[in-house]
Design a protein around this nucleic acid. Structure first.
Lengths: 229, 229
DNA sequence: TTGTCGGCCGATCGCCGACAA
DNA sequence: TTGTCGGCGATCGGCCGACAA
């Protein structure tokens, strides 16, 4: 998975330790989050924490739900960390892919409204997103319209008809949007993330709202969110 | 799963040993059919066959594909079979459910034509099926029509509009058929099996044609098959 | 007897500007 | 600036008899 779109989907608050960095593994915390059947060597289970090295690091996306996650392999260190050890890696600063992300990358996320997710078929493109992420329209045309190709986390290409119309004028996705919503099984409250890289290529990621088993809608509580990433 | 519809789906050639009957387990044959990861005790792997008792027997259907299968648990016998042993069960004759199936049960199977599986939405009901399996229509009506409710292997009810119309007259399923085809993901070459029990209740089962990875259609080769079960 | 086709009608999809928040 | 609505035109699903195999 491309690190730019991965990072945009995960959000700015998520930090994944870089390769070869030193981390502490907390067996107790892991046990609480993992499934009950998760097995852990008894030698580690009783320790409060285990010093480790990140020996493998992959940014992945679920092939069905598109949800992003990281796969880390931690190798226990034979001895606790010692200050000023010569083989220390750095835990601070940015990873290579994080640095790359900050380099000439623009992203924008929007929580889908009921109208966006409806079978009505359209998507209201916020003005800022159209101006800063998508290729500029030819405003001499009436109405200005273009075919936009974006790629998802798996590299699959999706095409949206991007039009600027209506009174007052606004940016919209029409043809192609409904197919995307249905295929990704998006509902109101989910988010879409558009990312433009340095070459002007646009990617799209999705972030699903946490859906409770409760019958009450949580869409209201999810509404107020910062739009720009 | 109801044994009547299970047997109709499996076909007359399929024989499942009855409970408590004696069977031979062939490890080599099983290994060849099972997935490579299937584990088998080394104690059994080298034997040509293992005398067993059928200690559990269930007729099941895959919840997604509707394909029927049997789950047997075989308990190895400590010693090879001896003739005239007092605890011998019988391997011949019919199981209880096979006997039940033969009792006042009528079934009919048809391989779906392209027209049956098309999105056109209809199903040509063969004359014999309409006469012998489905409840009789009121031929005084013009056209004769009724709403037929059938249950699948999971006990889910499906409703088909059964009408006798056209020139020349023929039996057809219209409303409800397309929904069934799409939900079961049926294609031309697959079969449907209708079963009427002694109480006149109608069940429906499906049997999928073996589909090869090859790009050539196998529909032609599958066509000539006996219709009545 | 029954598989396939073209015609046709109604339902749904989805594009549109109006309007208001 | 943008969310929702009603209108309406295009498309599609699916019911029909004709016809032939």
């Amino acid at each position: 998975v491309d690190p730019k779109i991965w990072r945009a989907c995960a959000g700015a608050a998520v930090h994944i330790p870089k390769l070869h960095s030193r981390v502490y593994y907390f067996p107790q915390g892991h046990m609480e989050h993992a499934s009950p059947s998760h097995l852990l060597s008894p030698a580690f289970r009783s320790l409060p924490f285990v010093p480790c090295i990140v020996s493998s690091r992959e940014l992945l996306a679920d092939p069905f739900s598109d949800e992003v996650f990281a796969k880390l392999i931690l190798t226990p260190l034979p001895h606790p960390f010692h200050h000023n050890h010569q083989n220390y890696g750095s835990n601070t600063g940015n990873d290579d892919d994080e640095r790359e992300c900050q380099n000439a990358v623009v992203s924008f996320s929007k929580i889908l409204t009921p109208s966006d997710a409806n079978n009505g078929g359209g998507f209201s493109v916020p003005r800022f997103c159209a101006d800063s992420v998508f290729p500029p329209l030819d405003f001499r045309a009436d109405p200005p319209v273009q075919l936009l190709t974006v790629t998802d986390v798996h590299g699959v290409a999706w095409r949206f008809r991007h039009i600027y119309r209506g009174t007052p004028r606004r940016h919209l996705f029409t043809t192609g949007w409904s197919k995307f919503v249905n295929h990704k099984k998006l509902i109101a409250g989910d988010s879409v993330v558009f990312v433009k890289d340095a070459d002007g290529n646009v990617s799209v990621g999705i972030r699903r709202s946490t859906r409770f088993a409760s019958t009450t809608s949580i869409v209201e509580a999810e509404q107020p969110a910062p739009a720009q990433g």
